[in-house]
Every structure is written in structure tokens, then in C-alpha cells.
Computed example of a mutant assay.
Amino acid sequence: MSPYEMLYDRKCRTPVCWEEVGSRELASTDVVLTTTEKIKIIREKLKAAQDRWKSYTDNRSRLIEFNVGDFVMLKVSPWKGSSGVDKDKEKS
């Protein structure tokens, strides 16, 4: 059953779908295997890059502890929410 038939519970009647819907082989097994191997290589390279970045960040980070009464400076930037928070501020 085609995705269209599953979704709309009837056959597709457009000029695009003149052929009978049935099982087809979209790509040969060689293409699928080659693509799978390339995806595996890409994942390994991404993992290596992420590990390098994590190692770099972990080596540079330091634990900062604050005590009650310590003065700190906070940098605050305006935040624009997607729910129209700025519009609410303008009205009030």
C-alpha cells in the first residue's frame, strides 16, 4: 500500500501517478552499502571532532565558587521570545 493510500484511504488520481504502485528496488545493494560505509565514516569524523572540542573545553574550564556576600557582575542582554513577550511589554 502506498503512503498516499494509507493517508487518504484511496488511490492517487493525479497525472503524476499513472503507474501501478508496487514494491520496487530504489537502489542496488552496492549503492546502499557504499552509502552506509560513507555515513559510518562521517559519523566517526564528527565524533572525533566533538571529542577534540570537548577535551579542549574541559581543559580550559575552571570551577568558580562564590560565597554569600561576594560581589559579582552579571552581563544581561535583552531576550526576544517567540511568544510575543516584547509586545506585552510595549502595551504596559
Rank of each mutant, 00 (worst) to 15 (best):
S82L: 11
D86K: 13
R10Q: 07
D86V: 14
V32G: 01
G69H: 06
K54S: 06
D86N: 13
S82E: 11
V72T: 11
V76K: 09
S61T: 14
T29D: 07
C17D: 02
R52H: 05
P78V: 03
Y4E: 03
G81P: 03
E65H: 14
I42P: 05
V16A: 10
V32W: 01
R10G: 02
I64A: 13
L46K: 13
E90N: 09
L33R: 02
A27G: 04
C17P: 02
Q50F: 08
K89R: 15
I42K: 13
D88T: 13
T35D: 09
G22L: 07
R62S: 15
W79N: 08
C17K: 04
R10S: 01
L33M: 03
L33T: 09
V72A: 15
N59Y: 10
R62T: 14
R52S: 09
R62E: 13
K75V: 10
E90R: 13
S82V: 06
D88Q: 12
D58P: 01
F66I: 13
C17H: 03
D51L: 05
W79K: 12
G81V: 08
Y56M: 07
C17V: 04
K38N: 08
R13A: 01
D88V: 15
V31P: 02
R13H: 00
K75I: 11
K54R: 04
T14L: 02
K80D: 09
M1V: 11
A49G: 04
D86H: 12
R24G: 01
K47E: 08
A27I: 05
Y4D: 01
K45Q: 11
S2M: 01
E5L: 02
G81S: 15
E20G: 00
R13D: 02
M73F: 14
E44Y: 01
G22Q: 13
